[in-house]
Each structure stands twice: as C-alpha cells, then as structure tokens.
Computed example of a mutant assay.
Amino acid sequence: MAAAPAPDSLALLDLARAEFTLVDPRDPHLRVDDLAPHRGDGIFETVLVTRRGAADHVHARDLHFTRFRASAAMLELPAPDPDLWHAALDAVVAEHRAARGDDEPFTVRYTLSRGVDAPVGWALTIPLDPKYVRQRAQGIAVVTLDKGYPAYFGQIAPWMLIGAKTLSYATNQAAGRWAAAHGAEDVIYLSHDGRVLEGPSANVVIRRGGELLTPDPKAGLLHGTTQQTIFSHAAEAGLLCSYTDLTVDDLMSADGVWLTSSARVSVPVTALDGAALTYDEEFSARMRTWVLGDPGTV
C-alpha cells in the first residue's frame, strides 16, 4: 500500500507570549465561534516558496509582510511582530520540506484572526494546484464582472476595507463559480463606472509596446506583491511601468494581458468575454523569469 501523503505543516502563534508551536494540522485547533470562520474577521497573506539550490526561498517576503501589517492597521488588529511571524513561517517551511522530502514548490498562508477573546494567528503550508502549470503555459479565458461600486470608492468609504487582504472571500469564490458556469476560468472586476480593477485573487497587468500598466490600487484593489516584483524588474530592463486607470478597450487593444498572483505567478489572458486577446508567449516567459529567477521552477 502506498504511503499517505505527508500532511501540511501548521504553526499556531501565541501573540501574547510572542511564541509559536508546530502542531498536527489534522487535529482540531480553532474554535467554531472564532471570528475568522464565523465572520471572516481577519487578514492573511499567501507566499510562494521555491527551491533555490540547497535552500528554500520565500518570494516577496518583505512585500507580503508590509501588506500584512497594513491590513492589520486597517482592521484595527494588533501590529504583527515581524520576528515572531517570520520565525513561524520559516519553521513550517522547514518542517514541510523535511516531511515531503522533495523539491516541489508550495505556498504558506499566514493568518491573523480577531479570535474570540483575543487575536490569534497561524501559518499553514499548502501545495500548489497542478492546474497552474497549464494556465501559465496556455493562458485562460476570463469574463468581466461589475464590482458594484465606482472606482476610488474606498477613498470615501474606508470602512469598506478596500485594499486590505481580509478573510471575507465568499464573493471571490462566487465570482469563480460564475466564471466556470460561463465557460471561463477567472474574472476581471470592473468598477461600476467602467474602470478595470483586479481579479478575485490576482492583479491585472497589460503591455502596450514598451510599457507595462496596471490599475492604481487607490481605485479599489489590493496592491499586488507579484505585480510589484514584475514592475521592479521591468523597470530595470528599461520598460516604462505605470499605475493608471484602464478600461476594457485598453485590455482588448493591449499587446498582452496577464493576471498576476503569488501562487500562479503570471497567467496570460487569452480571451475576454469571448473575444480573443493578443498572447505574447515570449514576454509571458520573461515575466515568470523576473519573478522566479529560474523559468523552470514551477
């Protein structure tokens, strides 16, 4: 009989004592009335981990943690202690790698919940979905959906937490189901006044000649860590990188459209609302190399 796969690794963080414990993820740990599962009242980040030589590399570690702290501030949660959270992250990475005994990439999702009586945190390793390899190589069809509010709405309604990476993902999941029911694999949200925002779990990047463009995070979206990494390398390569308002017409006329995220890296969008888009395979590979270093890593 084949051995069962090694379980994912889990660290529980005691924020008051500034310590963590590695535990069996198959055991019960979370109260059902914790405000994370009960109301989605918490924040998270998901980092990609790949093998570089003999060591594991956590991609965009600092960018993720900076956004994590910003999300905590928006939700009025305690400022996460970097020493504690980074130590817990490194511990689950090491345990996961030792248990699996392979060089396969994976992700770690670290979470801060408002808890019940006090905030609680944890870090959990998660294998990559095999479909991401196909999506990066072949591209995906996407549909647009109206987000229901105008661009820059968060500037006048900060309590909406637009720009915070919260655990409230029910509408994101619903958008994915809507896309699947309409023959697509993902969604690009539009503001009610027609500006491009983001995907349910990805940022939108387009190329127009020698320029890369992405929507301004202030328009009502999460500032992506992978998008920032791509822009940094693209600027070093001599490309102009801009944050600006985009429309569906901009996507249709672009020299390439991508959804970027930590786990999927960069996925070309080959069709939008049933219409074919330009697919630049060479530039897609270049973007993945900017993020991963080795194009064959994932």
Rank of each mutant, 00 (worst) to 15 (best):
L221H: 06
F231P: 06
W258F: 08
A181K: 13
G209C: 12
T260V: 08
A180S: 13
A175F: 08
S253R: 15
I156C: 05
A174L: 15
V248I: 14
L239I: 01
A254V: 12
F231R: 07
W178C: 09
R207S: 10
S242E: 13
G148Q: 12
I230S: 03
N172R: 03
A202M: 01
G238E: 09
S242T: 15
V267Y: 07
G224Q: 02
Y169N: 04
L246K: 07
D216S: 10
K165L: 01
L259Y: 11
Q173D: 10
G148Y: 11
E211W: 00
L213V: 09
S168C: 11
C241L: 03
I188A: 02
Y152K: 05
A234D: 08
T214V: 03
A157N: 15
L221M: 15
V205N: 06
S261D: 03
V265W: 05
N203G: 11
F231W: 11
L246F: 08
T229W: 00
L239M: 15
G176N: 13
I230T: 09
T244C: 14
Q227L: 14
G210P: 02
Y149A: 04
L167H: 03
S191Y: 06
W258P: 06
A202K: 00
L213A: 15
G154R: 03
S262Q: 07
Q155L: 15
L251Q: 09
S191G: 08
Y152T: 01
P217M: 08
Y149Q: 05
P217V: 10
I156F: 07
G238T: 08
V205G: 06
S201V: 12
I230E: 05
R177L: 14
L221P: 02
S191C: 09
A175Y: 06
G176R: 14
G148K: 11
A157T: 04
E236K: 15
D193M: 07
N172I: 01
A174S: 13
Q155H: 10
T260D: 07
I156P: 00
A263T: 13
T166R: 04
R208V: 13
L251G: 09
